[in-house]
């Protein structure tokens, strides 16, 4: 799994790629969310477009990020979830929590000012 971070306006875009499978590397992702809040970056867009495989461990980290940001008054939104990841969001009903987008600009605009 690889992680890339980039600021677009006031939105932190975190792009994950590769396999998101259980293990210590997911702790790193949790830390990124905490660090973002510490740095007052509370609008986060998680790009999953290049994630080739994900299981419940990945979902757990995404939920953790959502909770971390929401408690700080921020928001986590999802970009480019693949068909398989979208299916996991539906099975687990997480689709009811997360706003998901296909278009990056639309996703960025959704955060507002």
């Amino acid at each position: 799994m690889k992680i890339r971070q980039e600021m677009k306006g006031d939105v932190l875009v975190i792009a994950m790629s590769g396999k998101v499978i259980g293990g210590p590397e997911l702790i790193e992702v949790k830390e990124i969310f905490k660090k973002a809040v510490d740095q007052d970056k509370k609008k986060v867009l998680l790009d999953l477009g290049k994630v080739s495989w994900m299981d419940s461990s990945g979902l757990g980290v995404i939920v953790s990020g959502h909770t971390t940001l929401a408690r700080a008054g921020g928001a986590l939104r999802i970009l480019n979830a693949t068909k398989k990841i979208h299916e996991l969001f539906i099975i687990t009903k997480l689709i009811t929590i997360f706003e998901t987008y296909r278009d990056e600009q639309e996703a960025l605009n959704s955060f507002g000012d």
């Binding site: 419940s56 757990g60 939920v63 953790s64």
Partner: peptide, 12 residues
Amino acid sequence: ELLLTRGRGILI
């Protein structure tokens, strides 16, 4: 429960 970070494996 929807916001738990674990426990979804069997469901999936």
